[in-house]
């Protein structure tokens, strides 16, 4: 029983990490139908920029917000300088462009920060907490809190504000949205800024646990992408659910079956779930409708 609890807590930690990365994919997809494969790189930048700022002597929380601002500017710059120039390109070409951008960012990061992983101190004290025999670090709890806060904030933004309505309008029908006076170009920029913020936030949250390095984005990008496919493209609660399901599958399969078979088991389960529900657990039947 004690082991079960530990596996559960570990699964929740891993799952929340994947979920928080997955949330970044959702915003861009729901507005532009582009899957930003450079999302993992935003997460990596969040961790690495934080490391630089802190080691330059900035106070922790000042560095925290500066990091978000810098990654935000990078995300915005990426949309303005590259993606919006590819006028009228279909989403598939844009997705390929994001792959190129991710390789570029990763290469630059390798030159700037070197190849070694770095350490970032956790938000609060590092003493692990005992929950009925299972140990959990405070940072894991922070990750869960941030993840829930992001889901709530996205929900409020999308459903309770005018910007959110405009977002949804662009997603459902860009031409009609333009006729109503919404600028889809602006909305697209905004979605990249938003998901860069989410990426940076994810990077800041997971960095103290994972020891980020220049190539961390690949693995997290793949896991985050799997999570949104599993949860349903374009759905924020789906991204969280997908991330958690993958986390629990990983933890329980390495706990009860074999850590060597972990990945095989996880991806088999994802395939089976997708065979039963091709649009993901919470995905809509018609993906074209979009919506967050």
């Amino acid at each position: 029983m004690e082991n079960f609890l530990q596996f559960f807590v570990t699964g929740a930690t891993i799952g929340s990490i994947y979920a928080i990365v997955a949330l970044g994919f959702v915003t861009i997809y729901s507005v532009t139908k582009v899957i930003n494969l450079a999302q993992g790189e935003f997460v990596m930048l969040g961790g690495m920029i934080m490391f630089t700022l802190v080691s330059r002597g900035l106070p922790y929380w000042v560095a925290f917000f500066f990091t978000i601002a810098i990654v935000m500017v990078i995300g915005w710059g990426m949309e303005v300088t590259i993606l919006s120039k590819a006028k009228g390109a279909d989403p598939l070409s844009l997705i390929i462009l994001t792959i190129g951008i991710s390789i570029f960012i990763r290469g630059m990061a390798g030159i700037i920060w070197g190849k070694n992983p770095v350490r970032i101190e956790p938000f609060t004290a590092n003493e692990s907490i005992n929950v009925g025999g299972a140990a959990i670090t405070p940072q894991s709890i922070w990750i869960i809190i941030i993840m829930l806060a992001v889901v709530l904030a996205l929900y409020l933004l999308m459903n309770k504000t005018l910007v959110g309505k405009a977002f949804q309008a662009c997603s459902v029908n860009p031409i009609a949205a333009r006729l109503m006076g919404i600028n889809p170009r602006k909305m697209s920029s905004f979605s990249f800024v938003l998901s860069a913020i989410l990426g940076a936030l994810a990077g800041l949250a997971v960095a103290p646990i994972m020891f980020p390095a220049y190539d961390m984005g690949i693995m997290l990008g793949i896991k985050g992408f799997s999570a949104i496919i599993l949860g349903g493209l374009g759905s924020a609660p789906g991204a969280v659910l997908g991330g958690l399901v993958i986390g629990f599958l990983e933890s329980f399969s390495s706990g009860y079956i074999s850590s060597g078979l972990k990945d095989a088991i996880v991806f088999t389960c994802i395939l089976v779930i997708l065979l039963i529900r091709p649009s993901g657990i919470l995905g809509e039947k018609s993906v074209g409708k979009g919506g967050l």
Binding site: Q6, F7, T10, T13, A135, V206, S254, G255, S259
Partner: peptide
């Protein structure tokens, strides 16, 4: 037990 180089948490394997 085994793990992947960039796995975020190995508590499950260690518990075993």
């Amino acid at each position: 037990e085994s793990y992947n180089t960039q796995d975020p948490d190995m508590s499950a394997q260690l518990t075993r």
